[in-house]
Design a protein around this nucleic acid. Structure first.
Length: 815
RNA sequence: GCCCGGGUGGCGAAAUCGGCAGACGCAACGGACUUAAAAUCCGUUAUCCGGCAACGGGUGUGUGGGUUCAAGUCCCACCCCGGGCACCA
């Protein structure tokens, strides 16, 4: 066949069209005898355009999906849209376009790009979270959780901008001010909001991390452990004179005799009972903390004038309010032990509060208050602590907690850092929370048969007022499902993390209109065999998803404990060494690359430039290099397909050589897929193969050439689907190449017959010998020692030792 | 401050189990083809010293130590870069 020039503009549109006419191409089989494989990339937000960061993510998943098809699996590879969220509302304000219209048009654009890149998605299972057929199940789950006490209502603080008269999302707060009013500081306001009880699963979420070890990245598991933040200690009541008991949480009850004051969080309920001045000061601290964000904040506080009684010692200590005490952790109140806690030390030093050491280091003296520069948090021997003096810290922690429990003023306790999940958003573009507020009956759930509570489409979004839904009377005004009287619908909508917490279950049964999914289908497909996405979702999305799975299991919908068997987090894509961002204007658009170089080139380069877990740099010249490679493959294949069947002249050594390389590369790539996922080296291996094929082209027999081209086509199939399919057709074959069986490598063909062995003398490379592959130690040693050059170097020296490693090297130690 | 990654040619990187450091690609340079250029094909390219040369020798994986016949790889100490968490009592 005459050589053809590679032109992606001819090949790609041709197959793009043909594949569009085959809707079943990437469908998962419903009742299959094959083993299943569920590969999933994280649900994207439909921003309107794919960039090369997406391309990298999907290229990894798609290569894997296609490989698993070739390995004979029933592959589920779905895609959908995380379609609710703030950008649609912002677009509505800016361009006066309805959020739904804006979102769905973005979905269409992105879907077109997905198809352009030939990602093998089963679009029959597409999930769009802003559509009622999806979000009705968010509501349904919410009701189930409400029934079980897992969804509840309580007051919580929100960011408030006075100018907009609206609630701001955290990302709308810039430097403590409103994003649209740069000189309006954000205030904290308390609103009644809905929460999901993630803390009910805190223990299990932590414990089951053990099930994920080895198949999730360690750092993700570490982040989750820290996020859950289990901490063992004790709770103790201090009686505040004139007020009654206030409970503190401490991990160091053994230091309680060293407590010299009690400190309340500014948001502690007791603070609300103080005088106007104190309340104003506490409010100022709360707003300041919210506007400063995380970071080093100077500790400050004030004395309330109240006294608390230490239940162990009977000592009266002052009660302070301190900005560094968090209302959201423990009980919102602490006992300050400045001698043994760094933060307490800093605070007490600043305000001249007493410091009293009560722990002596095991191998040292009790710290001297006069010269102390810092707190000592070490365990040691308890002293100056009444009957507990002399105990080691560990023992004292246990004994003192038991004592507190016996006396009725405390107990051993475990506290978690993880909080319940606040799901209320004072927004329009989200799932309506299916609740009704009745003046008579209180909060009443919407009955199941009235689901979904549909978002009204005719709506004015101005960015002002509490929630846009409040302005829609036909939405708000309902009759109470209990008493039938006039009532108000809940106007908060759900956090979009709700949508992404269970979408991968819906993929298994996306059209079901009677239930979120059919259990039998979940039993077949779950867990997800391989989940691929960015590490930025290590905590929120992946913890919420785990929580949701456990919740669904406990209401009897599924049986699995964890949603994801294996997790892979790919690295970021940089553009010419810089992080891509809209503000820098260096976002590389996927369509642009597909136009200029083709989808295959973009996909291949996304995998070639670095190992997938590491950050990679996108460079135009690098992309050119991949394009050249594909051109080399195509020209080589086309000119050699059906080449005249002449046997090689000579001994056939060129055949043996190229087939050896071919099977070595096939073995390497097979192993890369099965174990290591270093596709950058897989692609490098293909390049080596093609380079060698160019050099030996004239000497290869027709039979070897046919094998070479066929296997090379298979090797390309997971990475460059267009080119692989085109080559498949050029070889006179039909059907999708990615449904062909993956070839088995032949170890015998791959075996080297002769190897070059480096010979070292005292660890330095001094020569090389050619020997038969697999030659044993003795033979290797003999071969090395008989080498002329080695002989010369050994002249007049004593050989102390010879290390010979078959097929690797020989090292001769001499004196 | 704490917890993860990472540091290898001019650049992206490779070296999978302690065994030839720099595969593969980019860039650069040289050659072939061409009237010419592009494209393509073939080469060279860690670095220093000696040599016209083939070649020979030294150095080299952030720094300093260590283990070993042998260290990019293992151990100890430290420096730098990136990311995450950050008053969690």
């Amino acid at each position: 066949m005459p050589e053809k020039t590679y032109d992606h503009k001819e090949i790609e549109p041709k197959w793009h069209e043909r594949w569009a006419a085959e809707p079943a191409l990437y469908q998962a089989e419903e009742n299959s005898s094959k083993p299943k494989y569920y590969v999933l990339e994280m649900l994207p937000y439909p921003s309107g355009a794919l960039h090369i960061g997406h391309i990298r993510n999907y290229s990894i998943g798609d290569a894997l999906a296609r490989y698993m098809w070739m390995r004979g699996y029933n592959v589920l590879h779905p895609m959908g849209w995380d379609a609710f969220g703030l950008p649609a509302e912002n677009a509505a304000i800016k361009n006066n376009r309805p959020p739904r219209e804006w979102t769905l048009s973005n979905v269409e654009k992105m879907k077109t790009t997905h198809r352009r890149f030939a990602f093998s998605y089963d679009w029959d299972r597409e999930v769009t979270t802003c559509e009622p057929d999806y979000y009705r199940w968010n509501q349904w789950f919410f009701l189930r959780m409400f029934e079980k006490g897992l969804a509840y209502r309580k007051q919580a603080l929100v960011n408030w901008c006075d100018q907009c008269a609206t609630v701001l999302a955290n990302e709308q707060v810039v430097d403590g001010c409103c994003w649209r009013h740069e000189d309006t500081p954000v205030e904290q306001r308390a609103l009644d909001q809905w929460f999901l009880k993630t803390t009910a699963y805190a223990d299990e979420l932590l414990k089951d991390i053990a099930l994920l070890e080895g198949s999730w990245p360690d750092r993700v598991l570490t982040m989750q452990k820290n996020w859950i933040g289990r901490s063992e200690g004790a709770e103790v009541d201090f009686v505040i004179e004139g007020h009654g008991p206030v409970r503190v949480f401490t991990t160091r009850i053994d230091t309680i005799y060293g407590a010299t004051c009690m400190i309340l969080a500014p948001g502690h309920p007791l603070v609300a009972t103080l005088g106007a001045e104190a309340r104003a000061e506490a409010k100022r601290m709360i707003d300041l903390a919210a506007s400063q964000g995380p970071g080093d904040v100077e500790k400050e506080g004030f004395d309330t004038g109240l006294k608390a009684v230490n239940p162990f010692s009977g000592e009266r200590i002052p009660v302070w309010v301190g900005n560094f005490v968090l209302m959201g952790y423990g009980t919102g109140a602490i006992m300050a032990v400045p001698a043994h806690d760094e933060r307490d030390f800093e605070f007490c030093k600043k305000y001249g509060i007493n410091i009293r050491p009560v722990i002596r280091p095991v191998d040292g003296a009790t710290p001297d208050v006069a010269t102390m520069k810092e707190a000592s948090g070490e365990y040691g021997i308890v002293e100056n602590s009444g009957p507990f003096s002399g105990m080691p810290s560990e023992e004292a922690r246990r004994t003192m907690a038991e004592h507190a429990e016996k006396e009725g003023f405390g107990k051993a306790a475990i506290t978690f850092r993880i909080k319940d999940w606040g799901v209320s958003r004072q927004r329009y573009w989200g799932t309506p929370i299916p609740m009704i507020h009745c003046p008579k009956c209180g909060v009443a759930p919407v009955p199941d048969d009235q689901l979904p509570v549909v978002l009204p489409r005719q709506i004015q979004i101005t960015g002002k007022g509490r929630s846009p839904l409040d302005e829609v009377p036909e939405f708000v005004n309902v009759n109470c499902p209990k008493c039938g009287e006039a009532a108000r619908r809940e106007t908060d909508t759900m956090d979009t993390f709700v949508d992404s917490s269970w979408y991968f279950y819906r993929y298994c049964d996306a059209q079901n209109s009677n239930a979120p999914f059919d259990k039998a289908k979940i039993d077949y497909w779950f867990p997800i065999d391989q989940y691929i996405g960015g590490v930025e979702h290590a905590i929120l999305h992946l913890i919420y998803s785990r929580f949701w799975t456990k919740m669904m299991r406990d209401i009897g919908l599924i049986t699995n404990d964890e949603p994801v068997r294996k997790l892979f987090t790919q690295g970021m894509v940089l553009a010419n060494g810089m992080k891509m961002s809209k503000s820098k204007g260096n976002v590389v658009d996927a369509i642009g690359v597909a136009d200029s170089h083709g989808a295959d080139t973009a996909r291949l380069f996304a995998l070639f430039a670095a190992p997938p877990e590491r950050d990679m740099d996108w460079t135009e010249t690098g992309v050119d290099g991949i394009y050249r490679f594909l051109g080399r493959v195509y020209r080589f294949a086309t000119r050699n397909i059906g080449a005249p069947g002449e046997l090689p002249g000579g001994d056939g050594s060129a055949d043996a050589k190229i087939l050896r390389k071919l099977h070595q590369v096939l073995r390497k790539i097979t192993q890369d897929f099965d174990q290591r996922w270093h596709f950058n080296t897989s692609i490098a291996a293909m390049m080596e193969l093609v380079n060698q094929a160019y050099l030996e082209e004239q000497k290869i027999s027709a039979a070897a050439m046919a094998q070479l081209i066929e296997i090379l086509t298979f090797l390309l199939a997971p990475f460059a689907p267009y080119l692989a399919q085109e080559l498949w057709e050029e070889q006179g074959r039909t059907g999708p190449v990615f449904k062909q069986p993956w070839p088995a490598y032949d170890d015998d063909l791959a075996r080297e017959t002769e190897v070059e062995i480096p010979v070292q003398i005292n660890g330095k490379l001094r020569g090389r010998v050619n020997v038969a592959a697999g030659l044993d130690k003795a033979g290797l040693e003999a071969a090395a020692l008989s080498d002329d050059k080695v002989q010369a170097m050994l002249e007049g020296k004593t050989v102390v030792k010879v290390i010979a490693v078959p097929d690797k090297l020989v090292n001769i130690v001499i004196k």
